[in-house]
Structures are given as C-alpha cells and as structure tokens.
C-alpha cells in the first residue's frame, strides 16, 4: 500500500513535470477545459433563470446539484485519460505487454501512468458553485455533513471509474469497442439534473445499470435535506463497492483473455 502510494506520487510528479515542460500546450489545454466547464455551467445558468422551478427543485438546488456533479467528475477525469485510447495505445500498439512485465497491478499502471491535470479545475469550479449555492440557501454544513461530502465525492468518482473500466475492458475481447463509450459518456450529463425529471426507464437505468445517479443525484438529496431518498443515500457505499468489485473482476478476466489470445 505504502509502495503504491509512493508510486502514484512518483508517476504524478513525473507526469506533471512533462506537462509543465510544454507550458503553452498545458495553458491551452487548461483554458479549453475551463472554457468547456464555464460554457456548460453558463448554459445551465441561463436555462434555469428562465425556469424558476424544475418540478419542486429551486434554482439554487438545481445549481447545487450541477456544481456537485462536477467534483467527482473532475477527479475521475484526472485519472481516466488512459482509458480513452486504451484499445489504440495499449492493445493495438502493444504497450500492454510492457505493463504485464512489471511487478505492479496492471490496472494501477494503466490508470496512474497519465493524468489530465487541467481537469482539477472542474473540482475547484464545482466546489465554488456548491459553496455559493449552499450560502444562498443557508444550508447548515456540520462536521458530519463534511465527512459525507468527502465520502460521496470519492464514491462518485469510483462509480464513474468502475463504469468506464468495464467499458474499457471490453477491448480485451474486441479490438474495436463498437462505439459504446460515447453514448455512455453522454449519459454523464444526465446526472447533472434531478433524476426525478426523467421517465421511469431512465431513472431505473441511471440507478441500477449505469449508476450515475448514485454519483451525483442521491448524494445531493442528502445535503439538500430531501428525505425521500434517504434509503438510496445509504446505498451509495454499497453500490460503489459492488460496481468497483465488478469492474475489477471484468478487468482481470480481460487481462486473462489477453494472455490467452495475445491480441
């Protein structure tokens, strides 16, 4: 464990050094990432000033949810970079052989070899939005709430990770991932708005199939004091653990398949 932590910090330091060596490149990446966040948020802001209420959700509540959703997403984005072209870089180009030759878990190597540093701005932006909305609503944030905030953010990031790991692991069997990633990626946006505005089918899907609801919506209901979803809130760690285990199992199966087919 200690060794892995040291390795992560090493990988991170190395990677940061490389990114910062190309300052212009990094600055452009940072500003385009920032622009995307600000534009998305601006759009939501404009949209919801026209709609004073979304079902029984106030403007501030909707914005709180939107802001909260950015935080786990930001953390996920920082470490998910290698998953996007995993099939291209690791399977087709054959880098995965190198990963297999090292005495460290394959998953660990793939996830922590590359970071999208600029995505940390999403975490900061999200936290700011959450802070402002909480003030406007005069939400009481006790120590307990703070604890749950950290836990649910971590769970949210883990849920995103688990879902995308499963999708990435598909490339151990099929070289071309038949385009399932982009639609699922778009579903991330669904989690930015109250789940209750969708039809039953989508609600079910976002809870139990691709559980993005547990990453954004259910945690938020707790902080906003909406007791209707208390049960779901308590299930967050369970769902997170379940999907994480599933992702690890699928990944390891994928690695075993890679070893037997060598594709």
């Amino acid at each position: 464990m200690k060794r892995h932590w040291r390795l992560v910090t090493r990988y991170f330091a190395q990677y940061a050094k490389v990114r910062l060596a190309y300052k212009a490149d990094f600055i452009i990446a940072f500003f385009s990432s920032m622009a995307a966040t600000v534009l998305g948020f601006g759009f939501a802001l404009v949209l919801f000033t026209k709609i004073p209420r979304l079902q029984d959700w106030t403007f501030d509540e909707v914005m709180f949810l939107y802001g909260f959703s950015l935080i786990p997403l930001g953390f996920f984005n920082v470490v998910s970079w290698n998953l996007y072209d995993f099939s291209e870089l690791y399977i087709i180009e054959g880098r995965f052989d190198r990963v297999l030759l090292r005495p460290v878990s394959t998953l660990f190597q793939v996830v922590f070899e590359k970071f999208r540093l600029e995505s940390l701005q999403e975490v900061v932006t999200g936290a700011l939005v959450v802070g402002i909305c909480a003030r406007r609503m005069r939400l009481e944030f006790g120590l307990g709430d703070l604890f749950w905030f950290v836990v649910t953010v971590a769970c949210g990031a883990a849920i995103y990770m688990a879902v995308f790991l499963i999708l990435t692991a598909v490339s151990f069997w099929f070289e071309d991932r038949v385009g399932i990633v982009p639609p699922v990626f778009n579903m991330l946006n669904f989690g930015r708005y109250p789940l209750t505005i969708y039809n039953v089918f989508i609600q079910f899907m976002l809870s139990w199939i691709i559980p993005f609801g547990f990453a954004t919506f259910y945690p938020t209901t707790h902080f906003l004091g909406r007791s209707a979803f208390t049960l779901y809130f308590h299930l967050i760690p369970v769902v997170t653990a379940g999907f994480t285990v599933l992702a690890i199992v699928v990944w390891n199966r994928g690695v075993a398949n890679y070893s037997s087919t060598g594709t």
């Binding site: 052989d97 297999l100 030759l101 075993a256 070893s259 037997s260 060598g262």
Partner: peptide, 11 residues
C-alpha cells in the same frame, strides 16, 4: 510466442 510465454505475457 515462446519468449512471451517465458516472460509470462502469454499463457
């Protein structure tokens, strides 16, 4: 292929 089996990459 032999090398890959000997190095543990392939089973």
């Amino acid at each position: 292929t032999t090398i890959k089996v000997l190095t543990g990459i392939l089973s």
